[in-house]
Structures are given as structure tokens and as C-alpha cells.
Amino acid sequence: MNRVIITGASGFVGQNLTVYLRKRNNEVNTLSLRHPDWINQQLDGTAIIHLAGKAHDTSNTSDSEVYFKINRDLTIDLFKIFIKSNVRDFFYFSSVKAVADSVEGVLDEQIVGNPQTPYGKSKLEAEKYLLKQVLPVGKRLFIIRPCMIHGPGNKGNLNLLYKVVEKGIPWPLAAFHNDRSFLSIDNLSFLLETMINNKEINSGVYNFADDKALSTNELVTLIANTLGKKEKLWNIPASLIKFLVKIGDFLPLPLNSERLKKLTESYVVSNANIKTILGIEKLPLTVEEGLEKTITSFRKIK
């Protein structure tokens, strides 16, 4: 039986991962990095999954230094304890945003990081520190770069898009043509447990994403169909939309430039490397199945 320690267990990913692992007879313990005495705890187990961190603030109001204190410095402190412990594996949850705020083509693990935000920079600095360390024999380090994670209980832009479609409001951004990668919480949990169980995998950096990308227009259609509705796609000129959302950068409106970018940009992430390493052809859920599960959960909590 695996004994797994999770930081950030109270968050969306942590809660779902804890349930997933326990259902499969893994022992899961949580470690709160907010507790003043956490640094003195003795860690023992199969793996540490470090989820705790400061997420990207789309309102851009957070102090930049806070990102580095939480995403970089806390990670370094935890890793030093891991090195001295009996724990075998260290999973650091970074992000695809640690290497690229925007993507041309398909993002793989070979890209040279060039993040532009404090969030991305803090994640990349943590990665660089970890990758420079010499691991004792028998220990492994995995840096996980997930794309946009979703699932039951998820909030954010996906939930915002759901509300637009659910209310019958036409999607006004159909003129923006893109492809985006998603990651269902079930596929994420499957990959993590499979990596823990496979003792032959080498330390390294691994992208996590579903097997296929979808356009936002396809996502709107999927949401509408899941709700039993007909999709409503409006092809308003992109130039006009870009002008109008600038107002949202100064006023508390539902759409601003940052959110528009997230909803309409192309961001395709390759999961080929981790699937090759694990010897799997496809993940348990297709991108459509995962999204339908998330969308259905929105209906239940309405």
C-alpha cells in the first residue's frame, strides 16, 4: 500500500485526489504548510505530492513577492525536508504557465521557459532549484506541468462559460478560432497514481493534459448539448470585442483582457511523453467525457 502525503489538500485538486487515492486503497495524509510547526514534522511515506501554492490572479492585484515566497521558497523548504526523510518520491505541481504564457504550435517538455507573470516566474524558479539538486539513491523528483484542470467542484473560466450558455446568452466570441488543452481531475489522478506505482520511471519534467484539444466554440457546443440546448454562436468581429473588453480592465465587468485571452487563445499541450513513459495509448477519459462530467456537476450545484 502506498502512503502519500499531500500539501494543499484542501484545494480543488487536493480534495479530489485524496478521494481518488483512498478509494484505491492508498493511505493519504495531509500536510498543512500554514501550520507554524510544519517544518519540524518527520515525513515518512511513499510520495509527497506538493500541491500547495499561490494560483494565478487574473485580476492582477496580488503582491508579486507573495508568489515567490509561496511557490518558490516554501517548495524549497519542503524539498529540503524530503531529502532528509524516508519518502521516496517528490511530486512538485508546477504549471505549463511556468514556461509559456502563450503557445505557438504544441507545447512539450523541451521548451525553454520564458514566463511573463510573477506566477509563472515563481513556478519556474522553483523548478530550476529542484532540477539542480542531487538526489540521494532511491529518491525521485517529478515536476508536473498540468494545463487547465477541471472537474466537479471546479470554479473559474469554465464555470463562467457554463453560466453564459446555461442562461441562453449567445456566445459572442465565435470569431476567435483557437484550440485549447484541458485536463480532467480523473485523468490527473490516474496519471499520478500510475507514476507512484511504477518504480521504473525516471525523475523528470512531465506535461499533464487530456489526449485532445478543443476549440472554445466546440466547448460552447458541448456545454449546450450537455444541457439539452442548441448552441448559440455569434461571430462579432474580433477587433470590436478587443476594444470593448478594455473597459473591463478598469471597471468590475465580467470580461477583461486577461479573461478574454484565457477564453480565446490557443494553448495546446502535448501529453505524449508521459503516455510513452507509462506505456499507455490513451487516458481513461476523453476530453469530451471529462468535460461532460464537470458540466453535469455544475447543474447539480445550481
Rank of each mutant, 00 (worst) to 15 (best):
E65L: 00
L43G: 03
T58G: 01
Q41I: 13
I48N: 02
S64N: 01
G45H: 12
Q41T: 15
Y67T: 00
S32E: 09
I39N: 11
K69N: 08
P36A: 02
D63R: 11
Q42N: 14
H35I: 05
P36I: 03
L31E: 01
H56V: 04
D63P: 13
R34A: 06
D37L: 11
A55W: 05
N60D: 15
I70S: 01
H50Q: 07
S64V: 05
A47Q: 10
I49V: 15
R34Y: 07
H35L: 10
N60G: 02
G53Q: 02
H56T: 03
I48M: 06
S62I: 13
G45I: 07
D63A: 07
T58D: 13
A52W: 04
A52Y: 02
W38Y: 08
D44L: 06
L43F: 15
G45Y: 08
Q41L: 15
A47L: 15
E65S: 00
D37F: 13
I49H: 07
D63K: 11
F68A: 00
T61F: 12
E65R: 01
Q41K: 15
L51D: 03
G53V: 01
H50P: 02
A55N: 05
A55H: 11
H50K: 02
T61I: 14
L31S: 03
S59V: 08
D44T: 08
I39M: 12
I39R: 12
L33G: 03
V66K: 00
H35Q: 12
Q41W: 14
I70E: 01
S59R: 04
I70G: 02
A55G: 07
S59T: 10
W38T: 08
A55S: 12
D57H: 06
L31Y: 10
K54F: 10
A52H: 03
D57C: 08
E65P: 00
N60Q: 14
